[in-house]
Design a protein around this nucleic acid. Structure first.
Lengths: 189, 189
DNA sequence: TCCGGTTGTAAGCAGCTGCTTACAAAGCTA
DNA sequence: TAGCTTTGTAAGCAGCTGCTTACAACCGGA
């Protein structure tokens, strides 16, 4: 991972390497527990470049969060969003099929800096997508509640590790949750 | 709050003051963002005493978490636990009617030190209480899911501040959630 | 060829963190 | 009163944090 003579002096590649390293580490450890030295180290780059290309750790986090959230939203229809996100939460952590945006969101909830704003924005975009699934007048509130459950399940399963939820069968969990959520997000028509 | 000549040399009172200050600050800011200097300052006590009486910041957190969680559990019947905890989550932050144990749990999820163990223990005690509400064979899993929802709602409402959930009417939210949770926690008899 | 901006590096700064140590005073016991 | 333990304080240590600065190497254009 050390800077190779072959790809030296390539600003775009360096920036991208920092962004990728940051996305990985923020998802694994959250904002507070990821240091700029960690990120630069994983990218194989001097840490001063992080500040040259992004200005601050906060600004880098914003860019990571915005990119990750919008990628996932753009790739998933609202009808599949809840199910896909729930499935992603229930995947084993090392499967690589997890949604890094949700993971990052979850592990960075302790921080109250500028990153809070972009977290809220991404959350509200998810909620707006989910709100299209019901024609109830309080659709957005119902969507927030569904999203809250998703995040809560991720919290208990991944971070706290409460049993039996932490190692429960994804199909079983999915069935229980989807049944209950149907009372929230359903069309009357 | 500064040490008064009147109550000087009272080990029990000093210990209690540290414990109370820690409970307040951990609930407000979480584990990582509360410093031992903050705690000692709020208790009006030299910070070296924190280490004399509790050994480490981790150990102090454990004692706070264990005390707070068990107090609330002992004071609430399982039938009321979900509703009471949900109501507590929906209270305004400054109302003083919040449950500090849930708050602390929520704001300390970023930390992966020794405090993770006591968090899990308290979580599992809550889940065991909720599990008595249904006679389904997967009662504990259902209880974990209900608890996850509770925590998720607290997360979105308090920490992220997503609208419209953050400022929604507690009665309205409560009605939506309880309806959905009834598909999880209900007796067939 | 030399010049000037771009890219990369090494070193360090100020501030904060949990925790420790050396010491002063208070108060019980004999 | 003398001595010992308990309680409290002031100062500081080592390590880490985000971020900055001074400087070297590179490279395209004149």
């Amino acid at each position: 991972m050390t800077a190779q003579p072959g790809r030296r002096r390539d600003a775009a590649a360096t920036r991208a390497a920092l962004l990728d390293a940051a996305a990985t580490l923020f998802a694994e450890r959250g904002f507070d527990r990821t240091t700029v030295r960690d990120i630069a180290g994983q990218a194989g780059v001097n840490q001063a470049l992080l500040f040259r290309y992004f200005g601050s750790k906060d600004a880098l986090f914003e860019e990571v969060m915005a990119r990750g959230g919008r990628e996932h939203l753009a790739a998933t229809t609202p009808e599949n969003l809840f199910d896909a996100s729930l499935r992603s939460m229930l995947e084993p952590a090392d499967s690589g099929r997890r949604n890094p945006a949700l993971e990052t969101y979850l592990r960075s909830t302790g921080s109250d800096n500028a990153s809070a704003a972009i977290r809220r924005e991404v959350g509200e975009e998810y909620a707006r997508a989910l709100a299209t699934l019901t024609d109830a007048p309080d659709a957005e509130l119902r969507a927030d509640l569904a999203l809250a459950w998703l995040l809560g399940i991720g919290l208990v399963r991944e971070i706290t590790g409460t049993e039996p939820l932490a190692s429960a069968d994804p199909d079983h969990v999915s069935q229980l949750v989807l049944t209950a959520v149907r009372t929230l997000l359903e069309r009357t028509g």
